[in-house]
Simulated scan of single mutants.
Amino acid sequence: MFRFDAGLKVYLHREPVDGRKAINGLVVLVEQALCLNPFEPAIYVFRNRRRDRIKLLLWDRTGFWLMIKRLEADRFCWPKDAAVVTLTVEQLHGLLAGIDLAAMQPHPVRIYTKTS
């Protein structure tokens, strides 16, 4: 599997998107619905109503990439927090692997002291 650069921002479009939308239609959604610049170094993530397909839109200074993933036996777990959800690249890889990001809990902070 390929990996995205860790420095990229990741934005999720919360509402389902018509699966027939191509690059131009998704660019309009980025500009109008997310109020973001589609030409910045970021990945924009969209899903269909059934949550079994996901589309990634990415600008790489020479053109747009449109990537599609279809799950055969499961559904993508979509975060439900804010109007525009931002993720890290590692969280995006987890989402693409089918991990429920809302169920993930950070490890507790442990402080170790040196004893004599």
Score class of each variant (00 low, 15 high):
V109S: 02
I111P: 00
M1N: 07
D74L: 07
T86E: 15
G94S: 09
K21C: 11
N48T: 06
A73E: 12
T113M: 03
Q32K: 14
V45R: 06
R70G: 04
A102H: 06
D60G: 12
Y11A: 12
L96M: 11
Q32I: 02
A42G: 07
A82M: 09
K69D: 06
K55A: 09
Y44R: 08
R51H: 14
W59E: 06
H13Y: 15
R53C: 07
L26F: 05
T113Q: 12
A83V: 13
H107C: 15
G63H: 09
D100K: 09
G63F: 08
A103I: 01
A102S: 15
K55P: 00
E15P: 00
P16D: 10
H107V: 15
P106H: 01
R49H: 15
I111G: 00
K80L: 06
E90V: 03
V28I: 11
N24P: 00
H93N: 03
L92C: 09
T86I: 05
Y44G: 04
L92M: 06
R61D: 10
D100Q: 07
H107Q: 14
N24I: 06
W78E: 08
P16Y: 08
L96I: 03
L87I: 06
L66T: 08
M1C: 07
A73H: 13
K9L: 12
E90T: 11
I68K: 05
E31K: 14
R3K: 14
N24G: 08
I23K: 07
T86W: 01
F4C: 14
R110N: 08
R61K: 12
Y11E: 08
F64E: 04
T113N: 03
N24F: 13
G7A: 15
I111A: 10
H107I: 10
N48W: 04
R14A: 13
P38T: 03
C77K: 09
E40Q: 15
A33H: 04
W78P: 02
Y112W: 08
L96P: 00
V84G: 05
R50G: 02
G63L: 13
N24S: 07
F64V: 07
V17P: 04
L56F: 01
Y44S: 08
P41H: 01
I99L: 12
T115R: 14
L58C: 08
L101T: 09
V89P: 09
D52M: 10
G25V: 04
R53H: 03
